[in-house]
Design a protein around this nucleic acid. Structure first.
Lengths: 203, 203
DNA sequence: TCACGTATCGTACTCAGGTACTAGGAGTGT
DNA sequence: ACACTCCTAGTACCTGAGTACGATACGTGA
């Protein structure tokens, strides 16, 4: 879905120029953030976060507007922290205001269709938050196991049941048990909890 | 940037039909996941995760291929968990294999340009993960528990059996079980392994 | 050819873990 | 006095996990 029309709040003429071909109609310029309140629900708006007089991203103003509008935040100096704030405020997108034209247009199209647009760096940061130390510090255990055993071991260490492991790997629960018995023996542990502690580097 | 050509691994004819107009050329069909290894670096491939014979997302196979290719994972029954696995494996996109044509095309264009494509639900999950990771997982579990429960919880999370916990604390095994039931309920986990993962800051 | 490792699967068994339902005593705040 | 939380504990029950016997098949190297 191509974005047909959108609003823009920015003093940056170069940004405006790059956005001129990004939708069927040229962007409608907003003079101040207060005008956001006058837009109809579901409309698309790009906000240059460097514009003077904007409330901080933590302000309730953004949560309210992001509820009803599709808002993309552009920053001349994007950071993961700022991106997190933007997304937590409910923004549909966060990106670089000096990004290339096709990149801006893509962001516009994505958020116009109701999805979220997030750059790679920020995405990596998000994943890191979820994953944390999930895939392990000590590598000693890996070299002791075969390829298949490593798969089973890491799933068991993440709390998966034998049955769900079996389904995920397309084998029988019995076979999973068989692998686990071998794994416990090789790593010198007695059960899956000890295995998890070992794999996640706790004692 | 429009995606010009891409590869597709799926048995689903309807999916293939919906993708026919999504790029300049019709999708090149792959017969088996092994063929991914024959593609040139940087090429775009959509993978229907329901295709028979695929290795699980945890398998090193995906990490390797996602390093060199731009891979989008499609699932007939997407879940946040599966999406996380896909992204952690290095996939550039994760979405619904029954998604509308324009949605699939958008995903294709986004990952072709090197960015990441993630649905709303999964994104929300990621954000929640960051918030929890930064706020809760540090000591959040401790404030939810009473003094006695903290003792039991930390011992259980270190792999102690109910009986040894009971002996250490001078109470009955039954009482330990009772505490644990309360603990599981408070921390919203199902067993001692999940408890250990929670307490040790893994997811 | 044969030994060996790896991956797969079967049946049967034991046992720790977890739940359901219940309940008494101690302490605390209203 | 009453409500509430916390710690304690009993019986009964179900289930997943792990083990103990197996077994077949495949590939590799001696």
């Amino acid at each position: 879905m191509r974005c047909t029309a959108f609003h823009l709040l920015s003093d940056d003429e170069s940004l405006c120029a790059r956005l001129r071909g990004a939708s069927a109609e040229p962007p409608h310029r907003l003079a101040a953030h207060g005008e956001l309140a006058t837009l109809a629900n579901g409309e698309v708006a790009l906000i240059d976060i460097a514009s003077p007089g904007l409330p901080p991203l933590q302000a309730p103003f953004w949560r309210v507007q992001c509820e009803r509008l599709k808002i993309g935040i552009l920053s001349p100096s994007p950071s993961d922290g700022e991106g997190l704030l933007a997304l937590e405020a409910g923004a549909h997108g966060y990106g670089h205001s000096y990004a290339a034209e096709h990149s801006l247009q893509q962001m516009l199209d994505v958020i116009a269709s109701g999805e979220l647009w997030v750059g790679r760096s920020l995405m990596a940061r998000l994943l890191k938050g979820v994953r944390q130390a999930s895939v392990v510090s000590g590598k000693g255990w890996q070299v002791l196991l075969t390829e298949r055993e490593r798969e089973v071991a890491s799933m068991a260490a993440m709390g998966e049941s034998n049955l769900s492991i079996a389904n995920a790997l397309g084998i029988t629960e019995r076979t999973v048990k068989s692998h686990l018995t071998t794994i416990f023996d090789k790593l010198d542990v007695t059960d899956r909890l000890q295995l998890a502690l070992r794999i996640h580097g706790i004692r």
